[in-house]
Design a protein around this nucleic acid. Structure first.
Lengths: 220, 220
DNA sequence: TAATTTATGTCAGTCCATGACAGATGACAA
DNA sequence: TTGTCATCTGTCATGGACTGACATAAATTA
């Protein structure tokens, strides 16, 4: 890696670190881009060459997270039941998060504190997942043997599980910002979600007409 | 209603109408607050006395929608199974929406076209639901006889159903902007969600320790 | 009509974000 | 080493979203 690239990496890191320190000290909204840039001895214009917006910086890590999740699902064995594969992917994800967070606890806790302390940021961080949800849906449809364009069930399954994740995170807001608590809450939400779903609902036996196979087994 | 109040109501309506016409003609981002204000012969400063932000105007209707949903749930009979009550509330909601939309189809379609045409707006419109989700969760917890602060199941149930709604809306984006299609898609998503859930999961029989009753019936 | 309340306009200013241009700096080949 | 080239950065100018302060105009009320 050349000097140029190293420097870039360095400034980027310096910007996020300075930013989060300021966010924690004065709040997200109260800190200006100018302040962040000044803290790193960089022109405000340069800030926007590294991040598209202040929010982009604050939610930068979500990109990495979303990649982790899709990668996790792609890595699950094909013969695993689809729902189990999805849930396991999310479990793996939070444990990966746990591990990396332990290496860099300080940074991790700062992030969580800032995001959780700002409803708008929190909402956006989840909204950013919608792209990932699309990817997960496609992969789930493949595993279920259906077409995601016409069959909403894979999408629904993904929606269920991500909403469980959301709930797990929500439960951890405000309370102890301990990583262990967060992981435990997400884990519990996932377990509950798995239990809440009718067994076998994700196992699609493709009907001839593309109609939902479970229809036959539904009451009435 | 005095003249003053009538005028206010009038300007507010004029602002939203002018705004949505401009949004449709030039796109949401491309139209400025100044343009909207000018179209109604009002100072830009006045715009912000009616709406907190451009986005607030665009998503104004969500407030009404969210009130409809919570009211619908509150009106369901107490002896109805919780999940059924929740799902029925959403069904009632979309049918109320259908009825009001038929009275004022033009405005309704404009709204949907603008929102669906802007991913950021769409995301925010759902993010705004999180306040409503909290209210729904409290009511669901009451119906299930648990404490929403310690038991995540009511919250999970609400999350499931709202994510079904989201999926229903998603399916309708891009395709025919027909109201009937939208309603049908949401309806289908709700039905699928109901079917996907294990029957009786919402019927909590409060264990002595507050532990989850369904635990006993879970495999392994 | 007079006094009070309240909506509106004007003005000035902050912050976020972007395009354009010029100068500085690292990359790379001769 | 040197000169060329690509790229990063700072400066400047600009525009759009908002906000506070103050004055004015209009409606409400007595």
């Amino acid at each position: 890696m050349g000097l140029r690239e190293r420097k870039k990496h360095q400034t980027r890191l310096a910007l996020t670190d300075a930013a989060f320190d300021l966010f924690l000290a004065q709040g997200y909204e109260a800190t200006t881009v100018d302040q962040i840039a000044a803290a790193v001895d960089v022109s405000p214009r340069t800030f926007f060459r590294y991040f598209g917006s202040k929010e982009d910086l604050a939610l930068d890590f979500t990109v990495e997270y979303n990649e982790l999740i899709t990668a996790a699902l792609a890595a699950r064995p094909d013969d695993e039941p689809p729902l189990a594969a999805l849930v396991q992917s999310f479990r793996e994800f939070i444990h990966t998060m746990e591990r990396t967070a332990e290496e860099d606890t300080e940074r991790f806790l700062k992030h969580r504190q800032v995001i959780d302390g700002n409803p708008a940021l929190l909402a956006t961080s989840f909204a950013r997942m919608s792209e990932t949800e699309k990817l997960l849906t496609v992969e789930m449809a493949r595993r279920q043997g259906t077409d995601p364009a016409t069959d909403p069930r894979p999408r629904l399954l993904v929606g269920f599980i991500t909403s469980a994740i959301r709930v797990g995170f929500e439960c951890s807001v405000g309370g102890a910002a301990h990583l262990a608590t967060l992981v435990a809450n997400v884990d519990r939400a996932l377990t509950l979600a798995e239990r809440a779903l009718r067994p076998g609902w994700d196992q699609l036996s493709l009907g001839s007409s593309g109609q939902v196979a479970t229809k036959a087994s539904s009451p009435g």
